[in-house]
């Protein structure tokens, strides 16, 4: 095709005059004003740099400062200095009395739990506890209780024993009013009990409670149905084991674990027949 003159059909309207206006249009084009929602959308889309750019052009407000500090704490490469700068903003915002204050308080605790290069679970736990005491019914305080319970279950030195850890987490569970968060903590208490080697009878009520609330995310729902079935069988609760094994076969019919489940059901029926014969 070299040397052949081609038309340019992709230029709108083939209007030669338009081409001379393009530079002017480029410099004078109006851009819609960004909003705080745009900054949140950028963060929701994992684009902290874009969020920082947007917030730089917005009038100052507590919400804008919160979004900016959150972006700063996720900007790559993340450094402890940047995190400390973000924490200073969260601390200042947390001194307020509005929803932003609670959110900032929560984010400050998170920095200490998972973001700093040297996490400090004790400090994070203190901040969660303060937040939960401050406005117990707020969503951020409720979430703080779940995170505090997780630390009690695995990370904090006090209480030390497995049973004591579960009891402490159960006390926090009693302060939750949000069903979705109750579900999450029930599940975590159940899993932590298994990690610490407690008996199936001890953890089953929590797993069943999580399942009853429902909407467990992702593969965890499938695992939960399986766990309740298998642990019920181990605990001798045959009716519950049968119910959940059958549910597993119905809801997850193509999973390779179904073969094992069918075997377990045969064993279960043999066990039930022996118990019935006794």
């Amino acid at each position: 095709m070299a040397g052949v003159f081609l038309p340019a059909p992709w230029i709108p309207g083939k209007c030669p005059g338009l081409i001379f206006l393009l530079p002017l249009l480029a410099v004078s084009g109006r851009v819609d004003a960004a909003t705080t929602a745009d900054a949140w959308r950028a963060l929701a889309d994992s684009r902290p740099q874009e969020a920082l750019r947007i917030t730089a052009g917005l009038p100052d407000s507590r919400e804008v400062r919160l979004a900016r500090a959150l972006a700063l704490s996720h900007l790559q490469p993340v450094t402890d200095d940047a995190l400390a700068e973000a924490e200073a903003v969260f601390t200042e915002l947390a001194a307020g009395q509005d929803e932003t204050a609670l959110e900032a308080h929560y984010l400050r605790a998170r920095l200490h739990q998972i973001h700093y290069s040297r996490p400090d679970p004790v400090r994070a736990a203190e901040l969660y506890a303060e937040l939960a005491a401050r406005q117990p019914a707020s969503r951020w305080a409720q979430l703080a209780l779940v995170k505090l319970a997780l630390l009690q279950l695995y990370a904090l030195e006090n209480p030390a024993g497995p049973e004591a850890r579960l009891v402490r987490a159960e006390e926090l569970l009693g302060r939750l009013t949000e069903p979705a968060l109750q579900r999450d903590l029930h599940l975590q208490i159940g899993l932590a009990g298994l990690h610490h080697g407690l008996k199936p009878e001890r953890v089953l009520p929590h797993l069943v409670a999580a399942d009853r609330i429902g909407d467990v995310p992702g593969i965890a729902q499938e695992d939960l149905v399986m766990q309740i079935a298998e642990l019920s069988l181990r605990a001798g609760r045959l009716a519950q084991a049968r119910e959940y094994f059958e549910r597993y076969l119905r809801d997850y019919a193509v999973n390779p674990r179904c073969f094992t489940v069918r075997h377990r059901l045969v064993e279960l029926e043999q066990l039930a027949a022996r118990e019935g014969a006794r």
Binding site: A37, D45, Q188
Partner: peptide, 30 residues
């Protein structure tokens, strides 16, 4: 997850963001 979860919580007036927020919150705890 933290960044996205908190951002969606602040956009929760939008139903899709609300669902994302709750899913991320539960997923993060897991």
């Amino acid at each position: 997850q933290e960044m996205r979860m908190v951002a969606h919580a602040n956009l929760a007036a939008d139903e899709r963001s609300r669902r994302e927020w709750l899913m991320l919150e539960a997923g993060q705890t897991l």
